[in-house]
Design a protein around this nucleic acid. Structure first.
Lengths: 195, 195
DNA sequence: TTTCTTTGCTAACGAACGTTAGGATTAGTA
DNA sequence: TACTAATCCTAACGTTCGTTAGCAAAGAAA
C-alpha cells in the first residue's frame, strides 16, 4: 500500500525533476509532465497536492543530502582543516553527480518557491556556505591554506563545483571519483600552501 | 525620432532584463513588465515584436560584448599565453559586472530561446569557451600553466567567474577592478607554475 | 463477497497568458 | 496649418494554465 504509492510518487518526482531541469519550473506544465508519465494532467493530483510541492520536495531533499555529506566529511575534528575541506568538496561533488537533474533544479529553480519556503531554503543555503567559509578560515588561521578572504574563496570554490551539473553527463569517461579528485586538486592547489 | 524610439525601447529592454533576472523569463508576464514600466501590456507591442525578441536581444548583445572583450584581451600574440589568459579573465569579469542583470539572463535564461536562435546561441557560447580552452592549452604547452586537462580547467575557471552575478552587487566595498584581480589571482595561482 | 485503497479518467472551472486591432493623443516637422 | 511618427489606450481574441469534482476500474485486504 505505502510502497506502491511512494513508488508512483517517486516516478512523478523523477520525471518532474528531469523536466524542471531541462525546461525550467515555470515553463513546465502539468500537462507536459502528465504526458511524459503517460497519464492525464488531472490524475497527477491523486498523488500530489500542487505543482510547487514537487519543487519543494526536490529542493529540500537535496539540501538534506548536501548537509548530511558535509557533516560526515567535516565531523572528524582531529583532521587538519585543509583535509576536511577536501573531503567536503568531494562530498559536494558526490551529491551533485549522484543526481545531476535534481542538483540542477536545486541550484537554479529554488526561486520559484513561494514564501515562506523560499526564505527557509535560502537560510539553509547560507548555512551550508558558511560551513565552507569556516573550514577555509580555519585552514587559513592554521597556515594550511592561503587566501586573503575566506568568504571570497568559498564563493569561488562552490561556484566551480556548482557548474558541474551543466556539463557532467553520467557514463562519461571520468568516474565521479575522478571528477571529485580533479576538482579538489585544481581548486586546492590554488589554496594550499606549497612548501 | 530614432533616438526617442530607441530610448523607450531601451527602457523596456532594461526593465525586462531586471525582471527576467529576478523572476525568470517564463515566469515574467508582459503585464508585469508593462506595470513596471507604468504602461499597459498591449502598448509594449508598439515597440517590440514579441516577448522572445526581448530575450534574444539581451542574450546576443551580451555574447557580442564577451567576444569583443576576449578578442581585445587576447589579440596581442606577443604576450605570453598566461598573460593573455589573465586579461581575458579580467575582461570577462568586466563584462559581467558592467551589467549584472543582463549577464544573469545571458547565463540562465537562454534556454527559453526557440530554434534556431537557441542553437545559434549555444554555438557562440561553445566558441567562446574554446577561446579560453586554447589559451590554457597554449599556456600549458609553453610551460607557463599547469593543468592535466585544459578543457576541464577552462570549465572550472569560467564556472567561478559565472557565479559572480549571483552574489555581486554594484556599489559594494570591492571595485570591479579589485574583483577582477582577486578572481584572476585565485584562479591563476592554482594554474600558474610557481618556481 | 464486501470493502478499501490506489490509480486513473473526463470534463470543466476561473484565471492568466501572449498578442492583436483599432483608435486616440501628443510632439515635432514641413 | 497639415502631416508624420511615436506613444499609449481599451477591449478583446484564442490558448493554455493549475487545479478540482465526480466517477470508474482494479487489486488487495477483510
Amino acid at each position: 500500500m505505502e510502497t506502491a504509492q511512494l513508488s508512483r510518487k517517486d516516478q512523478i518526482d523523477q520525471t518532474a525533476t528531469a523536466l524542471f531541469r531541462t525546461r525550467g519550473f515555470a515553463a513546465t506544465s502539468m500537462r507536459e509532465l502528465a504526458a511524459a508519465l503517460g497519464m492525464e494532467a488531472g490524475s497527477i493530483y491523486s498523488h500530489i497536492r500542487s505543482k510547487e510541492e514537487l519543487l519543494h520536495r526536490i529542493c529540500f531533499r537535496l539540501a538534506d543530502e548536501f548537509f548530511a555529506g558535509f557533516d560526515a566529511a567535516s565531523a572528524d575534528a582531529a583532521l587538519p582543516a585543509a583535509r576536511r575541506l577536501r573531503r567536503a568538496v568531494e562530498s559536494h561533488v558526490w551529491v551533485l553527480t549522484n543526481d545531476v537533474a535534481a542538483s540542477a533544479v536545486f541550484l537554479h529553480e529554488w526561486r520559484h518557491l513561494s514564501e515562506p519556503a523560499r526564505t527557509e531554503f535560502l537560510a539553509l543555503r547560507e548555512r551550508y556556505e558558511a560551513g565552507f567559509r569556516e573550514l577555509i578560515a580555519e585552514g587559513a588561521a592554521a597556515g594550511e591554506l592561503f587566501t586573503l578572504d575566506p568568504a571570497f574563496a568559498a564563493l569561488t570554490l562552490l561556484a566551480s563545483l556548482n557548474w558541474l551539473p551543466t556539463w557532467y553527463r553520467p557514463g562519461g569517461s571520468l568516474t565521479t571519483s575522478d571528477i571529485a579528485h580533479r576538482l579538489a586538486n585544481q581548486l586546492l592547489f590554488g589554496l594550499e600552501v606549497r612548501l
